[in-house]
Amino acid sequence: MISLDPRLEGDALVLRPSMIKFEGSTSTDIEICDAPYNPLPMYLNRQFIKILEDMGVKDKFFLNLQAQEVERLRMITDSPLNASIFLRRQTIGTPIHFPWLINKLAMMNLDFRKDGFLRDVLEMAILLELRLLKHKTRIPVEKGWHLHGLMDETGFLEEGQIYCSVTIEGKSQAIVGKDLIVTRAPALHPGDVQLADGVMPPPGSPLLKLSNCVCFSQRGVRDLPSMLSGGDLDGDRYYIMWDNNARPQRVFAPADYPRQKPDELDRQVKTADMTDFFLKFMETDQLGRIAVLHRVLADQEEDGTLNPKYITLAEMHSTAVDFSKTGIPVSVHSCSSILPMLNLNF
């Protein structure tokens, strides 16, 4: 993860020790995989909604947001322009310039809706979105973004503060306000959603040169990213939401899972190591099952995600997520004593 620091002079690239993965290379090439040219939109999912519900956000907030999206989907067939914007955003038919075709036809005074096939394509795309909304509860949040996390190198941000800025069509805007909702996927533990204050750096601050990202404070006892199910700043994206109608009544302490020590191999990696790892991964990969079980069970208890049994499930999920990095599989047997009624049989 590289970010701009206008305080550096000349052509300089500064690396932290943790960014050096392989020593001894003489190559001066640098490959950039991705850059945040545009801020990504935010979507609520079932995990976030469940935790926000347990934090005391009112039902009305979610129901309104969802109704708004249904209304938007309804309006898409109303004009060729709506349809073409929608298809382009969903990248449907873009390789054959389908969104362009709809606009072009409109310019020629031809209504694409008069053609059965073209209309079916659009309706199928809308139905797909509608089904995602209903069956995955994937609700877009207008007042929210999904942004890369960075560290405030200047030390301006105090504990509990963030600086968040986006650029839309050339215009920069900062998200400023008290108690912005900050979270990260996956979120299973009730403490995976936290609040922070969005502040504006003073004029001339190097932070003002950053865009489409969220800066976290380097101060305090514990950094905010690590509180959000073990996030870090090497390319993780964070959700920032500032809708005033979503007012959490309480915030929960973040999870504090013990650090897992990765399996060290003090010799050269052989092909057999790789195949072993792959097999072990296939044998022990239970991520999906844990997540589904968490969703199902959190629905059946009054205290939802706060129930100690599900905190354990959240921890198992965290271990499972890290498996590819640590080589440590989820130990289901050690948890069966805590979750006896579930009779987990993975």
């Binding site: 909604i49 469940k50 309804r74 067939t77 209309r119 309706e123 509608l130 509860t137 609700i139 629905d299």
Partner: peptide, 23 residues
């Protein structure tokens, strides 16, 4: 819970029929 309420708030058949009718 809220997830159940959100789920039942969408009648996909009806909404889709509406969308088709508008088109």
């Amino acid at each position: 819970k809220i997830l159940g309420k959100l789920y039942r708030a969408i009648d996909e058949r009806k909404i889709f029929e509406d969308i088709k009718r508008r088109a």
